[in-house]
Design a protein around this nucleic acid. Sequence first.
DNA 1: TCACTTGTAATCATTTTAGTTACAGGTTAA
DNA 2: TTAACCTGTAACTAAAATGATTACAAGTGA
Lengths: 143, 143
Amino acid sequence: MSISSRFAVGIHILTLLEFNKKGVNSSEFLAGSVNTNPAVIRKIMGMLKKAGLVKVQPGVAGAELAKNIADITLLDVYRAVNVVPEQELFSIHESPNPQCPVGRNIQDAILPLFGTAQLAMEKALGSVTIEDIWEDIKLNDRD
Amino acid sequence: MSISSRFAVGIHILTLLEFNKKGVNSSEFLAGSVNTNPAVIRKIMGMLKKAGLVKVQPGVAGAELAKNIADITLLDVYRAVNVVPEQELFSIHESPNPQCPVGRNIQDAILPLFGTAQLAMEKALGSVTIEDIWEDIKLNDRD
DNA sequence: TCACTTGTAATCATTTTAGTTACAGGTTAA
DNA sequence: TTAACCTGTAACTAAAATGATTACAAGTGA
């Protein structure tokens, strides 16, 4: 399975808020760039808001960034949009046979290893900011 | 979303083959330890076989390891059981708006970053072998 | 008041997972 | 050769998740 594209959309939205920071960023406008439904945007927006990454008000059109894009890492977005259950990127089969030495120990043996792998990935996400993405786009616009 | 438990089950099976290497490892026996259906085991077994990790023969009961457990990394298992589409741990929304500078560049900007994060995780998996797990279980058997 | 927006719930088609049943075909022993 | 047992596979199911869509209550401001 793949990690939900909510993550990529979240990144897209934040970058777009920077690009269009002088304009009015309604959910419909954002949806137009992402190419999806405004309700999808609003749902993701709610998550980004709860994480303190954006400012939105009921009834008033236009979202804004709540932080400098240099201070928003991909890990922040990843956590905000809740694409992976905390500490459970990898799922482990439940209730292996406790009568079997392998069965009764396999979970404890595997869990920390999976945790390490997940952490390695999250660390990589934590080292990149929305600003990095924005700079990349400014430099390499593929018209 | 989480990565399929096929991965954890694959690790379980390989460790169990080492534990019971003098016994007869039928799909029913393995299923008993994993606590699932024999057909599920046979399906995963087919993937491990295709990856050259186990030896199984149609009609004859009992699977064997095809390699030394010190030479089987978690990454080998992960690849074998096909839990993540190659180079696509993270999915990206398709067809963002090409009229928008952010929309037309976001995929190219994000892809290599996602790739780096995925690689970091896979590297972590590549540094652990089934032997490590087997040794852990032998040392820390929780009776 | 009116037009417009956000927040949110409900619904839907699609996809994936894990389990289950069924059975064709290989293998071995009696 | 027959009988018992196994693997390989396909088909089907229930449950869960995704992303899209519709609908509407409630907030905002001209």
